[in-house]
């Protein structure tokens, strides 16, 4: 019996120690997070978008939008403030959390969302793993909680630990405390230094759709309508000539946009303006700075056109 008591005491002492350390570490990480966000907001784009980013137009998307849309140029053309909240390699559910949170926190006039037909497909394991950046918001943001819980059935259990919430973040936090990222309101120019201009890829694409993602997509569209936020979807050009005639995901995207009357600017995707000039691209998937300037200018003209048409109606 003594033996069992001894074992139980030791286990209890160890668990108490772990809880104490986890609790302390949580404070420390939150402190570091705030410090990093104050010092280098552009380096902490997820946290910055969640808590502080402002603009009449707010841009959402992954790397193609991060390096493809220039806020200062848009401001000159459209006359209203713009912020690019895009974050590299982030899937649909990340955008879902960000857009919902931004609408509730600081209602922008326009949301520009860079989307591809495959974004409506079932997320890969890698996609879901990339959502770990949302972990610190698990308790405070219902959208994040909902999305994180989709990762696995034990996610709520794992989130009990403060340390787990900041898993793999320590270097990122420290580097943002001591460094500064210069961006043009979220835009980071992609150069071709060290990269050759890409060669044109061609082929056909067929993406499926995930019913949960489609539901979430429609939820955002409805929310924008309900809160009077103008949602504009765009497909940013890639250096690839893709035949989408058999693409189920693409057809669905167009169908949803048509059904809910959401403008989808897709004419620059597969457009000869971009497909005939490889010097506009950093690689097959990303515009370089020259390409971003051209695309932003063309997009602004198109947005003006859309807004004018809406005013007339």
């Amino acid at each position: 019996m003594n033996h069992l008591n001894q074992l139980a005491t030791k286990i209890l002492a160890f668990i108490s120690l772990i809880i104490l350390l986890d609790f302390t570490a949580g404070y420390l990480f939150r402190y570091l997070e705030t410090k990093a966000l104050n010092n280098n907001p552009q380096g902490m784009i997820a946290e910055f978008t969640m808590c502080r980013a402002e603009g009449d137009i707010m841009i959402f998307g992954a790397s193609e939008a991060h390096g493809g849309l220039i806020p200062s140029l848009m401001k000159n053309k459209l006359g209203i403030s713009v912020f690019n909240c895009s974050n590299d390699a982030k899937p649909f559910y990340y955008q879902y959390c960000m857009i919902n949170t931004v609408i509730e926190r600081k209602k922008p006039k326009v949301i520009i969302w860079s989307i591809y037909s495959c974004d409506l497909n079932t997320p890969t394991k890698r996609d879901m793993n990339s959502l770990s950046v949302l972990n610190p918001f698990y308790d405070t943001n219902d959208y994040c909680k909902k999305v994180i819980n989709k990762k696995s059935k034990y996610e709520n259990l794992k989130m009990v630990s403060n340390l787990y919430r900041y898993n793999s973040r320590i270097l990122n936090l420290i580097s943002n405390i001591f460094s500064k990222t210069e961006t043009d309101r979220g835009y980071v120019a992609l150069s071709n230094s060290g990269y050759k201009y890409p060669t044109l890829k061609s082929g056909s694409e067929d993406c499926g759709i995930d019913s949960e993602i489609v539901d979430s997509f429609i939820e955002i569209i409805k929310k924008c309508k309900a809160t009077d936020v103008e949602l504009i979807l765009i497909i940013i050009p890639k250096f690839e000539n893709i035949n989408n005639s058999e693409n189920f995901g693409y057809k669905n995207l167009i169908e949803i946009c048509g059904k809910y009357d959401v403008p989808l600017i897709k004419e620059f995707y597969n457009s000869p303006i971009f497909l005939n000039d490889s010097t506009l691209f950093r690689d097959n998937d990303h515009l370089n700075d020259k390409g971003a300037r051209l695309f932003t200018a063309l997009l602004c003209d198109k947005i003006k056109q859309i807004r004018e048409t809406k005013c007339i109606h």
């Binding site: 772990i18 394991k125 787990y164 898993n167 793999s168």
Partner: peptide
Amino acid sequence: RHLSYAFILILILTMGVFDSG
């Protein structure tokens, strides 16, 4: 001894890759 266990546990939680398979 206990601090050593705790240190390794903290390292696992903060630095471990939990989704590699």
